[in-house]
Design a protein around this nucleic acid. Sequence first.
DNA 1: ATAGTAGCTATGATAATCATAGTGACAAGG
DNA 2: CCTTGTCACTATGATTATCATAGCTACTAT
Lengths: 163, 163
Amino acid sequence: MPKRADLSDTFCPVGRSAELLGDRAVLLILRELFFGRRRFEPIAANTGLGPQLVSARLKMLVAEGIAERRVYQLRPLRYDYWLTDKGKALFDVLYAMRNWAERWAYAPGEIGAGPAIRYVHRACGSDVGTATVCPGCGAELGYGDLKGEPSSALRAEQVARTA
Amino acid sequence: MPKRADLSDTFCPVGRSAELLGDRAVLLILRELFFGRRRFEPIAANTGLGPQLVSARLKMLVAEGIAERRVYQLRPLRYDYWLTDKGKALFDVLYAMRNWAERWAYAPGEIGAGPAIRYVHRACGSDVGTATVCPGCGAELGYGDLKGEPSSALRAEQVARTA
DNA sequence: ATAGTAGCTATGATAATCATAGTGACAAGG
DNA sequence: CCTTGTCACTATGATTATCATAGCTACTAT
């Protein structure tokens, strides 16, 4: 493909987000970072992306101020990746994607009864379903407020990927 | 590129959404559809995408049940595109993308004072800012509840694109 | 008869992606 | 001390999606 058109200077906020998020690899890597995986190999394994793509995208996310590269071990020198505040703020987008998929992207009965990932409000313990405001206590929900529990089917899939 | 890996059978809801939304062209076309543009040429002009890409993606959106192709004129035969309920439900994702960008994707003072798009709750008239629940009346906000008003800078850009 | 209008399709150049293999720096075990 | 293992990457070549540009089809309007 020719160099893809640059949207980072459009005045449209969706266009600016699309420049970053309109990329499968970026979305998958962000998913892993939100899931608490911070190291290169687990991220590559769980996304199924090749190391070259993972490397390129992580570099970009660091350059954009969305992730931070930290040394976690000196000998041998090793790095891992952490979300910045700008990165953590993307949780709402991924959460909206999850909510849409839970409702629209599964065939009836495909996954059993409950959702593929159950989210619980840490502060009050309520199952929040697909809400953006806690149905139990009324608090607004963002990254850090929620605890995600993957269904057994999803957990099995993750184990298979890393094996 | 080789055929990109298929994520439509993963149990992860973010993976399933990423299969659809991890694509610049899809996000831009959805933006246009949410903006009320339904015809081929305006969508192509406002996204800056070539007609071949627009054609391919619209076909895919129809096949996925996200958009619907309707005849709006018989002689000559002409079609336009409408969001289905499944498509309309993606509003939350685009709205989250807009909210993130309004906060994080503009340099200070780049666009003047207000947001790039101002959203107003149709029912009560409140400016909702970047909330998912109306700050005026407390109602949950989804597609159809909100009216978007682009800033003058954004409007100027749109006019330039179609000229 | 010529000039639009609008929804597309055809063609060729370019570059992003994938799969696979390999590198560098070190630790641990025999 | 020599092999094996770990882990964050880099290198290479084949494949194919994307872009820009031009063209097509079926009409309407002048």
